[in-house]
Design a protein around this nucleic acid. Structure first.
Lengths: 233, 233
DNA sequence: TTGGACTATAAGTATATACATAAAAACCTG
DNA sequence: CAGGTTTTTATGTATATACTTATAGTCCAA
């Protein structure tokens, strides 16, 4: 059992993957430890570690110190999906991008937004509704709230030139973001803006972005009918 | 500039992240090479490598041999999202899970499915419609096609006991899958099955799974209104 | 001026070694 | 035997070193 021809972490990973897929190692099984595998594969333990770490990160293996490594029992797979800037997404399809600011104002947020953005009651936020068009046709519209305390300079910016999203990513550092994906039914407002029928199912992304504990912005993107998001594992 | 207190790859990564966020290193900038950083941070080059590799994987840095490492110019962020088995998702929320098989038959697939599954014309596939319930209420229904050539034994399995998805992940190895997320409008059929109103917007996941070039199964999951998928970066 | 060969460079990887850390398992001790 | 302590063990990490590989940049010749 000393094949000894696995000299790169990729080949070790491929071999481990093969054994999992071929059910030589079944879900729940402990696999040999790193030291044993390094002997079997004829490589250093660090190489085995590198290979197994990758598989653990993608959810295929469970690893615990002292306990060992086992093939994951519940196959929660992790897919990575790209969150592009809308302009790049549209231009990447060879279409021309344009966007317009429908309204821009300073206003009291509704309670849901106020809660999600963790601002005190009575604070007025920047409220911005924009429409992004692909080849002149409505593609997605964004209903966005921005915390001006977290983003000094936003009110001086000309968001008709550069979209709010692009302005923010270019000018405001952020640590993280929450995303949620869902569906909604087009009401009168959505139907008008997106030039679709009332009652159509629309794809929705809600995103909040924060930095240093402050929520910078919260936006709801409502896509025109037919929009799809893809990924693979 | 020899701080020298970054002795773990996590702390190096955090410091690099801080500099990017603080715009000390701006998008498009080349950052010092690994050797220089290892001197500055007072650690080994391998440690710097480990830190930067992670950031490159999440799309924050662009790395090329010989050229060097630069802060990513276009901020395509990569979010990872978990694809759980529905039963775990429901049970994880503390609700009781149940599923029923609405129909199970061997039939000719419509042309869209036939194309996606890359089977020859005239081949009959297993067609399965199932409903998954959370606390007795419709949660999601799956319209699934299975290629019996890729899955010997599927027709003998009792899919009323274990859902098709669970049976497949437990019994059939697979290499990869395609996912697409979208929204649809509830028609009469969806409204009936999910006990919702016609014309509601529903969240939809289409998934195909393959192994060794053969498409194993293709399923459309249509979720009851209100479903959300979450992730963060 | 183009295009191919060469070179220098930065990331990528492999390895032996050593130590750190989490946690299961064994061992007390009252 | 319960409850706490110690030991053991597998993974996790750091390091120096050496080599590999991709490729930007340079040089040279047709």
């Amino acid at each position: 059992m000393s094949g000894g021809e696995f000299k790169s972490w990729q080949s070790v990973q491929a071999e481990v993957l093969r054994r999992i897929n071929a059910r030589e190692w079944k879900p729940g099984d402990f696999i040999p430890n790193e030291a044993e595998l390094s002997v079997e594969f004829g490589c250093a333990r660090a190489t085995v570690n590198r290979a197994l770490r990758g598989l653990a990160e993608s959810g295929l293996l469970d690893r615990r110190r002292k306990a060992g490594t086992r093939v994951a029992l519940n196959p929660v797979r992790k897919a990575t999906l790209d969150i592009p800037v809308i302009r790049y997404e549209i231009e990447g399809k060879g279409q021309t991008y344009r966007h317009t600011v429908l309204t821009q104002e300073r206003a009291m947020p509704p309670s849901g937004i106020q809660a999600r953005m963790q601002v005190e009651q009575g604070i007025r936020l920047v409220h911005l509704v924009t429409l992004h068009l692909a080849d002149g046709k409505p593609y997605v519209f964004g209903d966005r709230w921005i915390n001006p305390e977290a983003v000094p300079g936003i009110e001086a910016a000309d968001l008709a030139v550069k979209s709010a999203n692009e302005w923010l990513v270019a000018n405001v550092p952020f640590e993280g973001g929450d995303f949620s994906f869902s569906a909604m039914t087009a009401g009168k407002r959505e139907a008008e803006i997106l030039a679709c029928k009332e009652g159509e199912g629309l794809f929705v992304i809600d995103r909040s972005t924060w930095n240093k504990g402050l929520v910078i912005t919260s936006v709801r993107l409502t896509f025109a009918p037919g929009y799809q998001m893809h990924t693979k594992i």
